[in-house]
């Protein structure tokens, strides 16, 4: 056992010394200042590059999950879908209208995917909620117009089969720089009208891509 009288502190000494630890919180602007300096030096990728695309894509993925979570399915899964009250009172799509699939794509960075780590998104929860509401409102508006047939979010877990017989392979990733996150099946008088409608979808505003595909009838 040591006989050094300085090996221990009395409670009062300990308390007094620990009281010196007080320091203010970092200024809120310091973080942005440091980030800006690191960007200037090239240590952080500048805004406008793929990093921001990933950031917005991640937001879009979450947004889509939220937007679809309420359930807008009226078509193939119409009997079991959970339909919001305000949606249930709307009209059924007319049968003579053309149907168009609006496919919601998200940009994916292969290196990010390989890192097995979701991108951090600087947006706060309040901002997410506002955007989710925007997606939901878009779907509700189409529903009220009688144009929405169904809408679903697709899970990230995917299986891609290629080849045939013994040569068939099944992969759990797609060799692509974009991923399909969900779809809206709508009705419109023409392809131009469907495109015009697709242009109003908030998915575009938040970095996603929308593909419009006419449904081709085979009978």
């Amino acid at each position: 056992m040591s006989d050094d009288p300085n090996e221990t502190l009395s409670d009062a000494e300990q308390k007094a010394l620990r009281s010196l630890a007080g320091a203010p919180d970092p200024s809120p602007e310091l973080e942005d200042r440091v980030v800006a300096e690191l960007k200037r030096r090239g240590a952080i990728r500048a805004n406008g590059g793929w990093i921001m695309k990933i950031s917005k894509t991640a937001a879009a993925a979450v947004i889509m999950a939220g937007a679809f979570a309420g359930g807008f399915a009226m078509g193939s899964r119409g009997e079991t879908a959970t339909v919001p009250t305000e949606v249930a009172t709307t009209t059924t799509p007319t049968s003579d209208a053309n149907q168009y699939m609006l496919l919601m794509y998200m940009r994916v960075d292969p290196a990010q995917a390989a890192a097995d780590a979701p991108a951090e998104d600087p947006m706060n929860e309040e901002a997410y909620r506002a955007i989710i509401d925007e997606y939901r409102q878009w779907a509700l508006d189409r529903e009220k117009e009688g144009r929405l047939v169904s809408a679903e979010k697709l899970a990230d877990d995917t299986r891609v089969m290629t080849g045939r017989g013994d040569q068939m392979t099944i992969a759990s990733t797609i060799d692509s720089d974009r991923a399909l996150g969900g779809y809206f099946l709508i009705t419109a008088p023409s392809l131009d009208d469907a495109i015009a409608l697709a242009k109003t979808h908030p998915h575009l505003k938040y970095g996603g891509e929308v593909e419009v595909r006419p449904i081709e009838t085979t009978n």
């Binding site: 320091a23 970092p26 973080e31 952080i44 991108a119």
Partner: peptide
């Protein structure tokens, strides 16, 4: 790993927020 691999702003900000208070407290002294 994310920051080093992709100069990822989100990863840096998370590191910054986790460790800056400790760095500032010592610097303050």
């Amino acid at each position: 790993k994310r920051f080093v691999r992709g100069r990822d702003e989100g990863a840096f900000r998370a590191l910054y927020r986790a460790h800056t208070p400790a760095m500032l407290a010592v610097a303050w002294r």
